[in-house]
Design a protein around this nucleic acid. Structure first.
Length: 483
DNA sequence: ATGTTC
């Protein structure tokens, strides 16, 4: 590399250290192989890992996952944990799409049973789940009071309204509801934006994808999770829509003032934050929990319309379709968790921005049914390739505050992707690969071009070799709806 | 990611 602004040392084939210097409070640690590191160093994301390491109360290290890339203040693919008494909470450490996340449904169906019905299936999904920028539902009109119930109760609210079943809740991170949500700290503007958008997909990299289990890497774990080769699966990737965006935006303003008030020295204004125990910190966490719960409810409602689309299109009963929830993970969130710090168990505030929780077997916060496997970790790839199901490990718990990667990671900006796609039909190219796509906008398809992303297989390879997740299965797409 | 620059 030409001008090196920071030192980087090899720990092993999959881990790199940026040693603490100057005002850094801790080292930076990045998970990547050698080739990936070269790519990663082309953007500002490692400088962002360093910037985060300056924040007060940061514990052990500022982490970068192999799918790291440039983000607002904190890198996307970043993990940082803070001491509750001396540390801070930062909206930039969570991101604009609060509780953007992934849910995986498994079915009793085999690929051959749906392969001739993909067109009607994708059409049904596209009709039943509004997609695209600003998408909203005409069939649901929430009162303000009811919306506040959504924010307080998350997926549980959705189930109480008939979207899915009570049994689903055990298979959602935090059972689909983050504690401490208080709608009092959500602005009217955020509430307004959220009201008509509940139960919609959104845009960008969000999608609903019907696919199948293409590869099993660990038969025993796959069996416990209910995955079998050629079985049909559904992946839902979406978040908290305009509501989460507005909450992030509102609190960035609050935190710029708070950083000044508490004399927090910031290497980048975008890292604006407040002490966890300050009023501003607590208010952000209450509002963030509201957005997180909205996102859980959103994925739960979308699940209902996925099930309905399957039942109607394939003319099967819900029981026969067996669209059961395998798991639902957050990948943009700040949470209070217990971790080992300097040999002591300690409650800390973990920021995961474009990073997934990866809890080990027998951790009390994972479903009983998965005690022996560890927490399912859901890693979507790009539109044209494949996604992965992994499980959490003890190493993740000790090395990365129980965290791992979240996806393929962009290598092209959105504009670059649009330029690359010029003169091509991405939908047609996908069709030739056997993937049927329906999208609200052509521009979104162009932005989400396969080549705009790293090969997720390489990302997953790193987290597996570094020991912070174990590979269980690969899923390949058959049809997909997008924004 | 985002009523894609109130």
């Amino acid at each position: 590399m030409e001008d090196m602004k920071y030192k980087i040392e090899k720990i092993d084939s999959y881990r790199w250290r940026i040693p603490k210097e100057g005002k850094m409070q801790v080292d930076g640690v990045v998970y990547a192989d050698e080739n990936m590191l070269e790519e990663i160093r082309k953007d500002e994301s490692l400088q962002q890992v360093i910037n985060v390491s300056h924040l007060p109360g940061i514990l052990l290290h500022s982490l970068g996952m192999p799918d790291i890339h440039w983000g607002y203040g904190f890198p996307i693919g970043g993990v940082a944990a803070f001491d509750i008494d001396t540390g801070v909470v930062s909206p930039g450490g969570v991101g604009y799409d609060i509780n953007c996340g992934v849910r995986l449904l498994k079915t009793g169906l085999y690929r051959v049973e749906i392969i001739n019905k993909l067109e009607s299936l994708v059409n049904a999904l596209f009709i039943n789940i509004p997609s695209g920028v600003g998408s909203h539902r005409k069939d649901i009109r929430l009162s303000l009071q009811e919306e506040k119930n959504v924010l307080k109760n998350g997926a549980r609210w959705a189930v109480s309204q008939g979207y899915g079943a009570k049994e689903d809740l055990a298979y959602i991170e935090e059972n689909g509801c983050i504690a401490g949500a208080n709608p009092e700290f959500v602005s009217n503007r955020a509430l307004e934006r959220g009201r008509a958008q509940l139960g919609t997909l959104g845009s960008g990299n969000h999608f609903v994808e019907v696919g199948y289990v293409s590869e099993i890497y660990n038969e025993k774990i796959a069996h416990v999770l209910g995955l079998e080769k050629d079985r049909v699966t559904i992946v839902v990737h979406t978040g908290s829509r305009g509501l989460g965006y507005q909450i992030c935006d509102d609190f960035i303003r609050v935190m710029i003032d708070a950083s000044r008030e508490y004399h927090i020295e910031l290497p980048d204004r975008q890292l604006c934050c407040a002490p966890i125990k300050s009023p501003q910190g607590q208010e952000y966490l209450s509002a963030m929990a509201c957005a997180a719960n909205y996102a859980f409810a959103n994925r739960q409602m979308i699940t209902h319309w996925v099930r309905e689309s399957f039942e109607r299109t394939l003319n099967i009963s819900p029981k026969d379709a067996q669209l059961s929830l395998l798991y639902d993970v957050c990948h943009n969130i700040a949470k209070f968790e217990e971790h080992m710090v300097d040999g002591q168990k300690k409650r800390v505030c973990v920021h995961r921005k474009g990073a997934t929780r990866s809890f080990p077997p027998y951790h009390p916060d994972i479903p009983d049914a998965y005690a022996i496997t560890g927490q399912p970790v859901l890693i979507p790839g790009d539109m044209g390739r494949y996604s992965y199901v992994l499980v959490g490990t003890e190493n993740a718990y000790t090395d990365t505050f129980g965290s791992t990667c979240h996806g393929a990671g962009r290598v092209m900006s959105r504009n670059q992707a649009i330029k690359t796609a010029k003169g091509r039909s991405i939908a047609q190219e996908l069709k030739e690969k056997g993937i049927l796509v329906r999208a609200d906008s052509r521009a979104t398809l162009d932005e989400e071009l396969s080549e705009a992303y790293k090969d997720v297989a390489e990302v997953v390879n790193v987290v597996e070799h570094a020991g912070i997740s174990r590979k269980v299965a690969q899923l390949k797409p058959l049809c997909v709806i997008k924004g």
